[in-house]
């Protein structure tokens, strides 16, 4: 499978490490075929970032990751002109200073545009950046080309990379930007999908353990008033702990109110208030 060849019907259908639902497959394949950006949203910990890694693996190409922070500027993804080094070099009389190209630092987009294999470009957590950030990238992502003013050259993508963008919904993205993307909302996996996910990550997990742990996990998620519901990644961490501790099965199974707080809960419940909530629930069920 490759992203390069338009005639070849490339299809993403999950990998051995990643369970993709049907709707996700359709979205990824549409974005890959039309070479349009794919915007992924969803609860934290549902595998948004991992998706890009797995897509790159499935299409057998490289992944270029661009992690966005609140201080990230759009032009940093294109290139940066390092005026300070040039000034220093000029004072030292370095020969390099004659050529401005020595001071142009390539950004992630440039890297992606000129990569020899059509890569997957991940723009992670785009909502972290300033509100104007997506707008500043509009043209570059749309046309897959930009202009370098210092040298006067135009960088154009040889092969349009597959751009995957993730967002945690902290800011709304501008309409003009959204119009150019395919969108997919990763919803929280149901129990069957979750069991698949567990099996993919821990193929030799005991069936009984997985089932019990899963039922506790969904119970925990359904407790009303939880501040931070545990997500897939927390479940996987917790299972890893459970497996390495090798607890006897009856610890999980006991429906004794005293042990209402699940064993090794630190991996599942990350919020002090939530732990208090559980303690209060345990206390109340003890009294009744």
């Amino acid at each position: 499978m490759s992203l390069n060849d338009p005639t070849q019907q490339s299809r993403f259908s999950g990998t051995e490490n990643y369970v993709a639902t049907d709707d996700l497959k359709v979205a990824v394949n549409a974005a890959a075929t039309l070479k349009r950006p794919l915007l992924i949203k969803g609860e934290p910990g549902t595998g948004k970032t991992v998706l890009a890694q797995e897509v790159a693996k499935a299409f057998d190409t490289d992944l270029i990751e661009w992690h966005i922070k609140s201080t990230t500027k759009a032009h940093q993804g294109l290139y940066e002109y390092d005026a300070v080094s040039r000034l220093r070099d000029s004072q030292l009389g370095d020969e390099k200073v004659k050529d401005i190209r020595n001071y142009i630092k390539r950004g992630k987009l440039w890297e992606a545009f000129t990569h020899e294999k059509t890569p997957v470009l991940l723009i992670d957590e785009i909502d972290k950046a300033d509100i104007e950030f997506p707008n500043d990238l509009l043209l570059e992502i749309d046309r897959m080309e930009f202009h370098v003013y210092e040298t006067g050259e135009t960088v154009k993508a040889v092969n349009r990379p597959l751009v995957i963008i993730t967002s945690n919904n902290e800011k709304e993205l501008p309409d003009a930007f959204l119009r150019r993307c395919f969108f997919h909302y990763i919803k929280f996996p149901d129990e069957a999908t979750m069991l698949d996910i567990i099996n993919v990550h821990y193929p030799d997990i005991k069936k009984e353990l997985a089932r019990e742990a899963l039922s506790i996990f969904f119970d925990v998620r359904n407790v009303p008033g939880m501040k931070k519901k545990p997500s897939t990644s927390e479940l996987l961490d917790w299972l890893k702990l459970l497996m390495s501790e090798d607890l006897p099965m009856d610890v999980l199974k006991s429906k004794d109110p005293k042990t209402l707080i699940p064993p090794l809960h630190g991996a599942l419940i990350k919020n002090e208030q939530d732990i208090h909530l559980f303690e209060r629930l345990a206390f109340m069920s003890k009294r009744t």
Binding site: V26, A27, L38, L39, D175, L178, F182
Partner: peptide, 13 residues
Amino acid sequence: QFYYLARSTFVKD
């Protein structure tokens, strides 16, 4: 499949 495709094309939020 069509439903999924249409959804990811039309719905952006």
